[in-house]
Amino acid sequence: MAERNVESVNKVREAVSQDLLGGRIDLLLGWEKGHYWWQSRPLFARSEADLEKLAWDSFCAVNLSRYLLEELKDHDKVGVLVKGCDARAFNRLLQDNMVRREQVILYGLPCPGMLDYNRLVEKAGGAPLEITEENGRVIIKVGSGEQEAQRDDLLLDKCKDCRYPDPAVYDQLLFSPQGEKEVTERFKTVEELEEMSAEERFGYWEKELSRCLRCYACRQACPFCSCRECFVEQENPRWQGRAYQPSENFMFHLVRAYHGTGRCIDCGECERSCPVDIPLQELNRKLIKDINELYGDYEAGLDPEQEPPLLTYRPDDPAAFSEK
């Protein structure tokens, strides 16, 4: 991994440093390494020294577009490194008029999918020391030797069924595109849940949601959750109570998911951010599936010109609720 990695980081650095140091952008949103080799965290680069820290590897999972909401308050022009999902997130913000296209330079990064540390541990049967990547395979070094695995088996859940690894919007594409991927299992769990009886399904979600700490990481990490004031914090009326009761858990998670109907870009940041691993993407995907079935295939964030189905009205829109 090391060599390929150095090469690609250099390429990214080269592309952005001209713009940052030349003053075309005031800030670059990228990634830098955290304490561990399997963590890449957001980098807010303003100088050459900052750019030295830049990382582009298999652990850059954090969706950077969301930071634009804050950073555009303090900067005229911001550059952002965008993977497929980050670019769709950007389009989403654009559609909500939360950002203006001319305020942002997007550096597109076709994304091979990000790796999951926990999967590496599972595969290696212990704490991995380092990994090497080659042609879709990953060699995991552990204390006792090496383990080899298919890269696809080590992906974060959020990356597994990613259909659009290439940025849908960019000013500059830094690597050759991955191409649209065929995904077969995107709605598999949703279908399983649909098979359940209403009681079973309620029980399933009641149990899953019972772990919710109400830390709101899912909301804070989400590119469609861009409301200036969330209903959760509204005081009058108070929609959301703090009690750890099923009714309050459902209130938060269902309202959150519904707010994303036709707007969720399926980046999975909500689920990745959840400290107790609630399968939030299943909720989102159920709504994506419903939208597709009701209004025809729609992929949020892919084309900013295409209005989300629930934000448009056509006389021939199905009225599933009133028909039943």
Binding site: R41, P42, F44, V62, R66, Y67, L213, R214, C215, Y216, A217, R219, Q220, A221, S273, P275
Partner: peptide, 16 residues
């Protein structure tokens, strides 16, 4: 002025 920048403003750290 720098340290907080990446904070999403969720409560994970405090709850765990």
């Amino acid at each position: 002025d720098e340290l907080y920048k990446s904070c999403l403003g969720c409560g994970v750290c405090t709850y765990v």
